[in-house]
């Protein structure tokens, strides 16, 4: 009798332990692919779309499948590329990597001939100005895609980093270097 009882208690304990561990791992465990998660962690997370993907999450998935180079993220620059390469166990050539953040287009007033080509190329209608007039870029609407700069016949559109001011300055992620 005692033996049966003790066997039963230990069995119940074992079952309970197993069940709890199972539950715990289900609740806490990584639901996503760990590599993708690490890649997402390494990306800036600004969802700016300059890599050509809608956001960093999608960029990470593409990276994990080998569909994108580790240098895909312009805002992340070299630091992020190094991290990505480390996670994927690959190497990359840092030589041709531009180190820049999200961009805004700016029309150089002395170059603009008012041809209006840029207006037609802009996917977000971020450029104002009529034919033969000086054109300006609406900072709010520009997504920094660079399409306008490509079509400008005088090379009068520059893509520049968004200036950091006291209003848009943010704390960097500790241990990741800072903006």
């Amino acid at each position: 009798m005692t033996m049966i009882l003790s066997v039963a208690v230990v069995a119940a304990l074992g079952l309970g332990l197993g069940w709890l561990l199972g539950l715990a791992s289900q609740w806490l465990g990584a639901t996503t692919d760990p590599v993708v998660e690490r890649l997402t962690e390494a990306l800036p997370g600004s969802q700016c779309g300059q890599c050509g993907y809608p956001g960093c999450g999608q960029a990470a998935i593409a990276l994990s499948k080998g569909e994108a180079p580790v240098t895909l993220c312009p805002p992340g620059g070299r630091v992020v590329a190094e991290k990505l390469a480390e996670i994927l166990g690959t190497t990359f050539d840092p030589g041709n990597l531009p180190d820049r953040g999200p961009l805004l287009a700016r029309v150089r007033t002395d170059y603009c001939i008012g041809c209006s080509r840029c207006i037609k190329s802009c996917p977000t209608d971020a450029i104002l100005g009529a034919t033969k007039q000086l054109h300006v870029v609406l900072e709010e609407a520009c997504i920094g895609c660079g399409a306008c700069a490509e079509v400008c016949p005088t090379g009068g559109i520059d893509l520049e980093g968004i200036p950091v001011t006291l209003r848009n300055w943010r704390w960097h992620k500790p241990g990741v270097g800072h903006a």
Partner: peptide, 26 residues
């Protein structure tokens, strides 16, 4: 108490702790 009184081992501390460890995340 349960293990000491009705369990198969004289001392249940280790089992008790491990079981509750597993319950901690919950």
């Amino acid at each position: 108490y349960v293990i000491r009184t009705w369990g198969g081992y004289p001392e249940g501390v280790a089992f008790a702790v491990l079981l509750m460890n597993a319950a901690t995340p919950l």
